[in-house]
Design a protein around this nucleic acid. Structure first.
Lengths: 185, 185
DNA sequence: TTGCAATAGTTTCGACTCGCTACTACTTTT
DNA sequence: AAAAGTAGTAGCGAGTCGAAACTATTGCAA
């Protein structure tokens, strides 16, 4: 264990406070932070990554909790339930048009992010990504990266494909977030 | 409004996810994230900054919510209520020994922070501080800085004092967080 | 092929957060 | 001394949260 110092304890407090601020934002339309985070994830995830247990992994919550959250969102018409053909236990959720609409609300943090210098934003993103990666490793959580940056991604002349799921991918799909994502070795 | 780009939307997602992760940590002792954040704040705040409404400001929550949270913590014996002499409406909360104990629990994010390079930690802290400042300005929130970095702080031969509250300060008090903090012009 | 373990999702429970509104008890202003 | 402002609290309804129990389905192995 590395020695605690002033810099680090302040960093810890900053993370806490930004988390609080983020959670306290007014997301509009009666949405709460969890619901907003769930919709945001679904809107970025590819079609293999929109099941309740995957949302649960992403949000670091239990399946039970996420089940309720998604049902609440479905009641409000912001997401839509889709039963799987191949596995009859399995369900997927897709964001509806009103759901995407709700995602457009801009908060104080959005404004602050938008106000950053290009370079500062990139640096901060890199640092946070690194921090998140380490923390997730600690918890044995998944990284949920972008498809085309994954070690299972294959780019060919006839289009891209995934070597793990053994499926072809549309160009736009390679930009989406995937549950199975693994960084290149 | 600055044009949305890939870098920024990813940064936004990272902030969301780290917030989620932070909120999902196991804080031990039946503590939840809000309760832990409240104790953490109280343990860092000076004696003029431990009233419910100030905690509410810091946590970006309403007085009602914080009132309940502090009462829940008092029931568990982690904080202690102290009525003010001068203003009989006013109450302050102090962290107890068991409360400080509960603060020692280390989470995955703590571990990740501890694992950062000295320089990376400092850089990240600076970037987050800047982001937080901008976001708070947007919300008209307070910055809650360290006493001795405040424009009302006065250092003299007979010890430090606060020009705003018109009180003398013990050396250790100048290291604490203050509600009235304002950055030097 | 049956037989059971693993998996996907849901339900219920109790404790709690959260904003809101209404309220009490003080203090300050006029 | 009345009115306006401030500090804190109670109660409400919706929702989160983890834990545990439960259903339905799938997959594997004897």
């Amino acid at each position: 264990m590395v020695m605690e110092n002033e810099e680090r304890s302040e960093l810890r407090a900053l993370i806490d406070r930004i988390s609080r601020l983020n959670a306290a934002e007014d997301w509009g339309g009666g949405l709460n932070p969890t619901q907003r985070a769930a919709i945001a994830y679904l809107s970025r995830a590819n079609r293999y990554s929109r099941m309740p247990s995957q949302v649960a992994d992403y949000l670091s919550a239990t399946r039970g909790t996420v089940s309720q959250t998604l049902k609440a969102l479905a009641r409000k018409g912001l997401v839509e339930e889709r039963k799987s053909q191949s596995d009859r236990r399995s369900v997927s959720y897709a964001v509806t048009a009103p759901g995407l609409e709700a995602l457009q609300v801009s908060t104080a943090i959005d404004a602050a992010v938008a106000g950053l210098e290009e370079k500062a934003a990139a640096g901060l993103a890199a640092a946070l990504k690194d921090l998140l990666k380490t923390a997730l490793k600690e918890r044995e959580g998944r990284s949920f990266g972008i498809c085309k940056t994954c070690r299972h991604h294959r780019a060919g002349v006839k289009g891209a494909s995934c070597a793990l799921l053994q499926v072809d991918l549309a160009p736009e799909e390679t930009e989406e977030v995937c549950y199975e994502h693994e960084a290149v070795a």
